[in-house]
Design a protein around this nucleic acid. Structure first.
Lengths: 116, 116
DNA sequence: CGGCTATATTCCTTGACTTGAATATTCCCA
DNA sequence: TGGGAATATTCAAGTCAAGGAATATAGCCG
């Protein structure tokens, strides 16, 4: 999973923009109006979203029409796959792990004896 | 969708931690070792993850065992629902929108005449 | 109790991000 | 070509998160 995607979505205004764009593509000005932010801010947020590959901006005459790109959302969906077992089926392997921990005081460290 | 969840996951070390915890719960020390970071950093990142509800920390003797909580992942999965149409089925309503735009110069603004 | 292990917390510094205001750029149209 | 609308960019300032180092806390064991 790409941290850039997540950090782009982590900003409230940008998350709001993305949710607005579900219904339909919008121009920069429309987005600024609906979010009650000023146009330069909207442009900046849209640039971050575009750089992250979350939206694409199509120039049409004077305006720029912004719409969602599928890839990052599909990536997110794929990334979620191994986590779905958390709520579908068994809980977690915590119990197994606790037993393992009691038997072996060193529970399979990755890099031992690093720097004392 | 909660921006806190996203911003917690947006940090590379924390994303790494979460991916480590898919397989099994781990202690703070194990996480620090595997990520090649120092223990205080690990503790701080884990605190952020715990505050965001992404992990839970169970005290067992001297150690703290960290494991994933299902809720934020399920929330993410639910949040993704309306975006799945982006790659499943029709592209986007861009064409419709463009026609609409040509017919009406004011494309349904939200709050008009705000500040002079 | 004394010491050791595991973890948490604090303080500080640095760098990134967000915003506002002002300005530059681009493009259509009369 | 000139004006105006839509959008982008720059600059300065304030805020916040991340890392490092040192230290504090907590629990186990001999």
């Amino acid at each position: 999973m790409n941290p850039t995607t997540l950090s782009a979505l982590a900003e409230p205004s940008r998350l709001h923009i993305v949710e607005l764009l579900i219904r339909q593509p919008l121009t920069v000005g429309e987005i600024a109006t609906r979010l009650h932010i000023r146009q330069p801010q909207a442009s900046k947020h849209l640039r971050v979203l575009a750089d992250a590959g979350i939206i694409e901006i199509q120039a049409v005459a004077n305006r720029r029409i912004c719409r969602l790109r599928p890839e990052p959302f599909r990536d997110l969906d794929d990334w979620l796959t191994p986590y779905r077992r958390l709520w579908q089926g068994r809980l977690d392997r915590l119990d197994d792990y606790l037993q393992e921990l009691q038997q072996h005081p060193h529970p399979t460290p990755d890099t031992e004896g690093e720097a004392p």
